[in-house]
Design a protein around this nucleic acid. Structure first.
Lengths: 228, 228
DNA sequence: AGCAAAACGAGAGCGGTGCTCTCGATTCTG
DNA sequence: CAGAATCGAGAGCACCGCTCTCGTTTTGCT
């Protein structure tokens, strides 16, 4: 086996083991030494492949973003043929919800508190943008179809318009500011809901998470004008 | 100085120092030994006052909940005389936002990923309930005033009604399910927005956090039927 | 008032962590 | 083929949470 092959293989072995440990003990308790022991090498050897624990965590962050992004994109394309925007939106929302429930530690890693002194290098932003990107694709579709928003939406002034200026470059169509605001709110609602649920803030308040989440998703779809 | 006084004083000194360290280095890097050094005692002595690092963290969690709760309640009562529900709602939302921005590590401690193996003993829930409680008080007021919701809201079925059953005991007035759902959504929107903003997920997307947040708050107030 | 009991601070120590450095062995490359 | 780069292993540093022991001090009961 060539040196390059070997390097790739050990790198992956480390990352896979780290991923397993992450799923079991969470980001905070993730130990580089324990990972090294599990892989079968001494701890200092790991530093040949990841310069620090944080770099390893960053790799796991990118991996988590990509897995969530892939799940969401798959859910979207799975129902896209139907042309039903509400269904697409619901599929995406439930995909995020399901993935978060199935991978709580990974979700916490990317959407919880930033872990170390943290750094989100540019490598992560592409992966991180996959979920918002998928949502924006549906938004664009509803814009193209000239669907009216389902809830009366406040006119957007010049300041708020420029405040959202960073999103427009990611859009392929001209979109009304009111619609963009509604989609921003849907995005924050979605992740706010999941975070509050997963981190225990709905404990004893909401008795049936799935039912309530499904209801909220349909309400958001209504507000966005995707239904009916 | 009596032993009881001394104990109280040392306990507070430890907690205050811990709080300072928390604000500087964050929950993950909070070191019991460093706190002990700063207070001027040896690390093992701290265990006379807090049985473990997690217990100390729990104390800080309760403290953070209470400080945020107090800030929010103060903001609410500060504008309550006006009787303007939209203003009350806005004051509360901005109080949460301002506090979170001013105390990012404390916010992350209570609304970010659950820190250790974590445990949220019953002592915390009363403190944690102050913000949702304040929101519900405004919701009750709007119910009493028979304000119509500002956005068309889906009828709530029996399942969703029972799913929200845990919240009703906290309500003093009978409230329509559609209104309750809207307030739940406002709650998740609020904290979802703040978390996504604070944890860096709006980076390069939203260019002016304050403007956008203010806009969203007014939109939420509209949806809840608090405006005009 | 005297004395046992409880509370306390200090210190040593255990096993764990992230990370650095050095040293041979292996592999690649010119 | 020789020099250079890469790699795994080990020792070691400073730190961590936590436990235990040991004098000292304060408390509360008789």
């Amino acid at each position: 086996m060539s040196r390059a092959e070997n390097r790739l293989e050990t790198t992956q072995a480390i990352q896979e083991t780290a991923r397993r440990h992450l799923a079991e003990v969470g980001p905070a308790a993730l130990s580089l030494r324990a990972i090294a022991r599990d892989v079968g090498m001494v701890s200092s050897a790991v530093y040949r492949y990841f310069p620090s624990r944080d770099h390893l965590l960053t790799a796991l962050i990118v991996e988590a973003y990509d897995e969530l992004g892939a799940a969401v994109e798959a859910a979207d394309t799975g129902v896209r043929r139907r042309g039903d925007l509400a269904k697409r939106f619901a599929a995406v929302c439930h995909a995020v919800h399901d993935w978060a429930r199935a991978h709580p530690h990974e979700y916490a890693l990317i959407y919880g508190s930033p872990v170390p002194g943290y750094a989100a290098p540019d490598t992560t932003i592409a992966s991180a943008a996959r979920v918002p990107g998928t949502l924006l694709r549906i938004a664009e579709e509803s814009e193209r179809a000239e669907r009216a928003l389902g809830a009366p939406t406040r006119a957007v002034g010049a300041r708020e318009r420029t405040a959202l200026g960073g999103i427009r470059p990611a859009l392929d169509v001209e979109m009304g500011d009111d619609r963009l605001v509604r989609w921003m709110m849907a995005w924050t609602s979605l992740f706010g809901h999941i975070s509050l649920e997963l981190f225990g803030h709905m404990y004893r308040g909401v008795l049936d998470y799935d039912t309530h989440f499904a209801h909220v998703v349909t309400q958001l779809a209504d507000d966005l004008g995707l239904s009916g």
